[in-house]
């Protein structure tokens, strides 16, 4: 995904994004940078991302990870990003502390699945889904820094568009990203 226009200037940073155990709310908030997206596209280009629909990540400068790690596929995707991205960023509450999905962490996984798929009224009776295509769930949901090394954290549920903008502006300029007081938010 890139815009037409001047191809002069410094090499564009290659950016990959994904949502693991997240709700895509952080991606939606990222799009809240609105027309700044056009300025941004003069400086970055997207690799694997819901915006490009590329399925795998190539060598990148920046990886933005939304969501925590709740299943085996999340682990594979996260490791693919870590392997390919020079700078990996945990974006949003779930990537940083597990967030809403981690509310199941004090429950036994089997009991949790039975509660949802076996014991509720009005279910078809087919039980807990076991299609081989479904990734194996992990007993607890974990923030991504417990699986791979993370370079930066962008908190918020979701981080505001302004926080994304400030963060990326710093990163593109080669500065250590630093948010001003009102932009550091956990909710």
């Amino acid at each position: 995904m890139s815009t037409s226009g001047s191809s002069a200037g410094p090499r564009k940073l290659r950016v990959a994004t994904t949502s693991l155990a997240g709700c895509f709310g952080c991606h939606m908030s990222f799009l809240d940078i609105d027309e700044y997206l056009f300025d941004l596209l003069d400086r970055i280009e997207f690799d694997r991302s819901p915006l490009t629909d590329l399925k795998h990540c190539g060598p990148c400068d920046v990886g933005l990870i939304e969501g925590g790690v709740c299943n085996a596929e999340n682990v594979h995707v996260l490791r693919e990003f870590r392997k390919n991205c020079k700078t990996l960023v945990a974006v949003g509450a779930c990537a940083i502390n597990g967030g809403l999905p981690a509310q199941r962490n004090h429950l036994e996984l089997g009991a949790c699945l039975q509660e949802v798929y076996a014991f509720r009224d009005g279910l078809s009776g087919s039980g807990i889904p076991n299609d081989p295509e479904l990734p194996l769930l992990i007993d607890q949901v974990h923030p991504i820094h417990e699986i791979v090394r993370v370079d930066y954290f962008l908190p918020g549920c979701p981080p505001s568009g302004a926080a994304f903008r400030a963060f990326l502006t710093d990163l593109i300029a080669g500065r250590t990203p630093r948010l001003d007081y009102p932009a550091i938010r956990y909710d």
Partner: peptide, 19 residues
């Protein structure tokens, strides 16, 4: 306090105690 001290993540592994 965490905002004031620019705590961007909890850095350590979470205990997730049942409470």
């Amino acid at each position: 306090q965490a905002y004031e001290h620019e705590m961007m993540s909890a850095r350590f592994a979470y205990f997730y105690p049942p409470r």
